[in-house]
Design a protein around this nucleic acid. Structure first.
Length: 570
RNA sequence: CGGUGAUUAGCGCAGCUUGGUAGCGCACUUGGUUUGGGUCCAAGGGGUCGCAAGUUCGAAUCUUGCAUCACCGACCA
């Protein structure tokens, strides 16, 4: 490609609205342009990267035995009614009507369509397992799109779905996909981790997310510092503190704590550490029949945070987790927020393992402006349950039994689920077994955010000059940058010969034939992140040499012109 | 959806307080100059000042309403 005939579109200045570095660089390097909230045009350079990611994903999916299909982005609503997600999915699902006022959705994912397809096309156990994938544009009407293509509303996704007659078989394919994902992210040149994940709204059991580690990531990942254990923080188990609970030494004693409504202020006022206090949060339980929802008290140590996901999974607790209103608080405890505690509460009390391990702790006295000191479980709180309710924090013992927890930020670029029979059941998708009986299929599903990977790769590979593409996804392998080509026939001839040779060899080369000053060209190619720069200049031609600059290492070296092609023979 | 802030040329911004009919830098066009790290000079093109209504002789500027965008909190690849 010659730059004079290309849409280069680099920007000197950073657009004000771009917050994260990948978004800034994607705009500056001319990869994308903003159209509307969460919607982007991919410019030629960006599209080249996107296609490279896409191809690696495709190759590895095919190698792992998945077969490519392409499903419509616009889907009839009745499929979604059938699965139950027409009602469950919420406003993120963009709904629209056609000219006949028939309702459709813009596909945010394709479980419905694929299940319908397989249900029609696959009828014998002999055809199983079946694993199908597509690489296609998805639309999710995100509440808050942000960070450029990192969280766009329209985005490119690879989604795969596998179908099985036994759980055993699903687990095998799940492992094959797990391994394929590892290969994909390795080939992409990314620093990534598979982490244990929650299944979210999709349901089913068994799930891993694949995260690219970067400070700008939106998720917290809990790692063990001594093993491969990694889990999304919402899923990482917080173990009970080791050892027996200490024996009570203090009497229960009510003290006035005027205006101390937060753990911090109570701890300051009483001159104690937050980890000797507990906070009590009231949430709604599941409503039975016509009765009002019961109020349930969740107790975590003062220095810990409630994990809402863990809480809402407990039996009898309303999901999604709903906090009690101020009126409900007063009605249930007699006190306002800030003075509530588990002592003398006649509602269900669930304590986090760490909170339950405390002796002689401080808690609200269920009377505005008062706290108890010297509170103890059993003696003062006769009935309570213990559960894992909190987020792990750095330094906690790892649930895997080895090492301690370290927390890092990650960008979720892949997610694999064991789905189970949720969709197959709802949409009546089954096969005939060996014995001629109808059997509902078990499914797995496997997503990769293709466009998000482009942003994630930049988050992980950039410097103050611009992008430093991993070789596998660089839009161009090499750039030819001639110095003052319009003044030197030698330079022009050498550059053009090199360009022709490289092109002929099938190497992706960008030839900067603009009549620009050297600095402008260097800046543009460094911004765009081309891994190798070939600088052709008068000053080295007498020795039949050109300069090679490596974008990743920054190293410059002089090489013989006729050895250039050897750089690309691997 | 709530909170905060913004909206003036493709991009980055000034002008608004104190109304008088729009300006700077980058980019773009032309000419010259310069040439191994975003040269310099000159001349130019490009804006219904987000939209609508109001106040006024007169509105980018004041008032009201609406829209859009971004950031902070609940969703997900």
């Amino acid at each position: 490609m010659r730059t004079s005939q290309y849409l280069l579109s680099t920007l000197k200045e950073t657009p004000a609205h771009a917050e994260v570095v990948s978004h800034q660089l994607m705009l500056r390097a001319g990869l994308i342009r903003h159209l509307a909230s969460g919607l982007y045009t991919w410019l030629p350079t960006g599209l080249k990267v996107l296609k490279k990611v896409e191809n690696i994903v495709r190759e590895e999916m095919e190698r792992a035995g998945s077969i490519e299909v392409l499903m419509p982005m616009v889907q009839p609503s009745d499929l979604w009614e059938e699965s139950g997600r027409w009602d469950d999915y919420g406003p993120e699902l963009l709904r629209l009507n056609d000219r006949h006022q028939r309702p459709f959705v813009l596909g945010p994912t394709h479980e419905e369509v694929i299940t319908k397809l397989v249900s029609n096309e696959v009828s014998s156990y002999k055809q199983l397992p079946m694993n199908l994938f597509q690489i296609q544009t998805k639309f999710r009407d995100e509440i808050r799109p942000r960070f450029g293509v990192m969280r766009g509303r329209e985005f490119l996704m690879k989604d795969a779905y596998s179908f099985h007659s036994t759980d055993e078989c699903l687990k095998q394919t799940y492992q094959v996909m797990f391994d394929a994902y590892c290969r994909i992210f390795e080939r992409l040149g990314l620093d990534f981790r598979p982490v244990i994940a929650d299944n979210g709204s999709i349901g089913g059991e068994g799930s891993h997310e694949f995260h690219v580690l970067a400070d700008s990531g939106e998720d917290d990942i809990a790692f063990s510092d001594a093993s491969d254990y990694a889990a999304n923080i919402e899923k990482a188990e917080a173990l009970a503190p080791s050892g027996e609970r200490a024996t009570p030494t203090q009497e229960l004693n009510k003290v006035a704590t005027p205006d101390a409504k937060t753990i911090e202020s109570v701890a300051n006022f009483l001159k104690i550490e937050a980890n000797t206090t507990v906070k009590t949060l009231l949430v709604l339980g599941e409503a039975k029949d016509d009765e009002a929802a019961p109020i349930i008290a969740l107790v975590v140590r003062g220095d810990h945070e409630l994990n809402e996901l863990k809480a809402e999974k407990l039996e009898g607790i309303a999901s999604p987790l709903t906090f009690a209103t101020d009126e409900q608080l007063v009605a249930a405890t007699g006190a306002n927020a800030g003075s509530i505690g588990p002592v003398n509460l006649n509602i269900r009390v669930i304590a986090d393992r760490s909170a339950a391990h405390l002796a002689d702790f401080v808690c609200g006295a269920n009377e505005d402006g008062f706290h108890f000191i010297g509170a103890n479980w059993e003696r003062d709180v006769t009935t309570y349950e213990v559960a894992d309710l909190r987020n792990v924090v750095a330094g906690d013992p790892s649930p895997c039994g080895q090492g301690n927890i370290v927390i890092k930020r990650g960008i979720e670029v892949g997610h694999i689920f064991q789905l189970g029979q949720k969709y197959a059941q709802a949409m009546n998708c089954g096969v005939l077994t060996e014995s001629g009986k109808n059997q509902t299929l078990t499914m797995g599903c496997y997503g990769i955010g293709v466009s998000r990977i482009v942003a994630a790769a930049i988050e992980q590979n950039h410097d103050k000059y611009g992008i430093k593409w991993p070789e596998a996804i660089a839009p161009y392998q090499v750039a030819i940058v001639p110095m003052n080509m319009h003044k030197s026939a030698r330079v022009q001839e050498t550059a053009q010969n090199l360009y022709a040779q490289l092109q002929q060899a099938g190497i992706e080369v960008i030839f900067d034939d603009r009549k620009e000053r050297p600095g402008v060209m260097f800046a543009d190619h460094e911004l765009m992140g081309t891994p190798k720069l070939l600088v052709v200049g008068e000053r080295n031609l007498d020795n039949q040499q050109i300069e090679l600059k490596d974008r990743i290492t920054g190293e410059k070296s002089l090489i013989a012109i006729d050895s250039v092609m050897a750089l690309f023979n691997k």
